[in-house]
C-alpha cells in the first residue's frame, strides 16, 4: 500500500492517553471531512453497514445530534438507545445494557454519563468501539479535538498561543480535556474563575488568574468561556448568578476589550446568557462558537473513521 496511515485504536476515552501523533492524525483527518460539508452529497460510504449506538445517560441534544450527523455522513446506521434519565441508573445495569448492545452487534457506542470512568468500564466489556461523549468531570475528548481544530483554523501555528479558560474549572470535563489537548499542542493555558471553582490541585501547567484585568494583561489569543451550571450557586460556590456575571462573566464592557485586542471567543455551548456571557456578546464578530459546532461534526467523523471495533482482541493488523 502506498497510503500512509495510523494504527487505529478501539476506543476514544480521553485525551490523556492519546499521543501527539494520534491527535495530529485526528485533527488532520477532520479537515477533509469538513470539506465534505460543502459538497452536494455530504455523505461518504466509509462506515456503510456499521451500527452506531448513542447511549446518553445525561441529556444533551447537541452532542448527540452532532455524533448522529457525523455517523450518518459516514453512512453508518445510527440508533439512539433510549436511556431513561428519570430513573436512577446504576453502574451494574450499564453492564447489562452493554451485554444487550453486544448481542445486537453494535459496532460503535457513543456514551455520555454523569459518572467519571463509565465509558472506560463499558469499553472493557464490549468489542464495540466506545466513544466517550462526556463522563462526569473526567473527559470529553471530542470536545477537546473540536476546540483544538477550531483554534488551528484561526491560528494554524497554534504552538505558543495563549488560551484563557474562564469559569467552573472544578466541575468541567471540558476544561480538563481541552486544557490537556492544548497543552499537548504547545498552547499555553491559564484559567480564571472563583476560588471555589478553581482547584489548587489542577494540572500544573495551568496558571490561575483571580481577575479579568490580570488575565487580559497576559494577552490571551482566545478566551474560552465555560458553561456555569446553575446549581453551583445553590451549592454555595458563589453568592449569586449576577455577582458571578459581574466578577467573572464576559460583560459587554469586557467584550469591548476583547474586540480592541482582537481576542477570539470560544464556548462549548449551550450558553447561559447573562451568566457567563452577556447577551450582546453573542454577536461578537470574533466568536468561534458556531464554528465549533460545525467542527464538532468533522472531528467526530474523524474519530469514527479512525477507531476500529474489536481492535484490541484482533490486533491492529490483518
Amino acid at each position: 500500500m502506498t497510503e500512509e496511515g495510523l494504527k487505529p485504536r478501539k476506543d476514544l476515552l480521553d485525551i490523556e492517553s492519546l499521543d501527539l501523533e494520534e491527535i495530529e492524525f485526528l485533527l488532520k483527518t477532520a479537515g477533509p471531512f469538513k470539506e465534505l460539508f460543502s459538497r452536494s452529497v455530504k455523505k461518504v460510504p466509509a462506515l456503510r453497514g456499521k451500527t452506531v449506538l448513542t447511549l446518553f445517560y445525561e441529556p444533551s441534544t447537541r452532542t448527540r445530534t452532532s455524533f448522529e450527523i457525523a455517523a450518518n455522513r459516514l453512512s453508518a446506521d445510527v440508533t439512539n438507545f433510549g436511556v431513561s434519565t428519570s430513573s436512577v441508573v446504576k453502574g451494574e445495569s450499564i453492564l447489562d445494557t452493554v451485554d444487550t448492545l453486544q448481542a445486537m452487534r453494535t459496532d460503535y457506542i457513543v456514551i455520555r454519563h454523569g459518572d467519571s470512568g463509565i465509558p472506560g468500564l463499558v469499553a472493557k466489556h464490549t468489542r464495540a468501539s466506545v466513544l466517550n461523549a462526556g463522563d462526569g468531570y473526567h473527559a470529553h475528548p471530542t470536545q477537546a479535538l473540536l476546540d483544538a481544530f477550531t483554534l488551528r483554523e484561526v491560528y494554524p501555528e497554534s504552538a505558543g498561543k495563549r488560551v484563557l479558560i474562564v469559569g467552573d474549572i472544578l466541575h468541567s470535563r471540558v476544561a480538563r480535556s481541552t486544557s490537556i489537548i492544548l497543552n499537548k499542542l504547545g498552547v499555553e493555558v491559564s484559567v480564571l474563575g472563583p476560588g471555589s471553582l478553581v482547584p489548587p490541585a489542577r494540572h500544573t501547567f495551568m496558571h490561575a488568574f483571580t481577575n479579568w484585568g490580570d488575565a487580559l494583561d497576559w494577552q490571551p489569543h482566545v478566551v474560552y468561556l465555560l458553561r456555569v451550571q446553575l446549581e453551583r450557586q445553590q451549592e454555595q460556590f458563589f453568592p449569586s448568578l449576577s455577582e458571578y456575571h459581574g466578577v467573572y462573566g464576559l460583560t459587554n464592557r469586557r467584550v469591548e476589550i476583547l474586540r480592541q485586542k482582537g481576542i477570539y471567543l470560544m464556548h462549548p455551548g449551550p450558553v447561559n446568557r447573562g451568566v457567563e456571557i452577556a447577551d450582546d456578546a453573542m454577536k461578537y464578530e470574533r466568536s468561534l462558537i458556531n464554528q465549533q459546532v460545525e467542527n464538532g461534526i468533522a472531528v467526530r467523523m474523524a474519530a469514527l473513521y479512525w477507531l476500529r471495533p474489536g481492535t484490541d482482541e484482533r490486533g491492529g493488523d490483518s
Binding site: 467519571s116 470512568g117 462526569g136 473526567h138 473527559a139 472544578l170 480538563r176
Partner: peptide, 12 residues
C-alpha cells in the same frame, strides 16, 4: 482522596 489525582480522574 481530593487532590491532583481526583482532579485528573474527574472524581469527587
Amino acid at each position: 482522596n481530593e487532590g491532583a489525582v481526583s482532579y485528573r480522574l474527574g472524581l469527587p
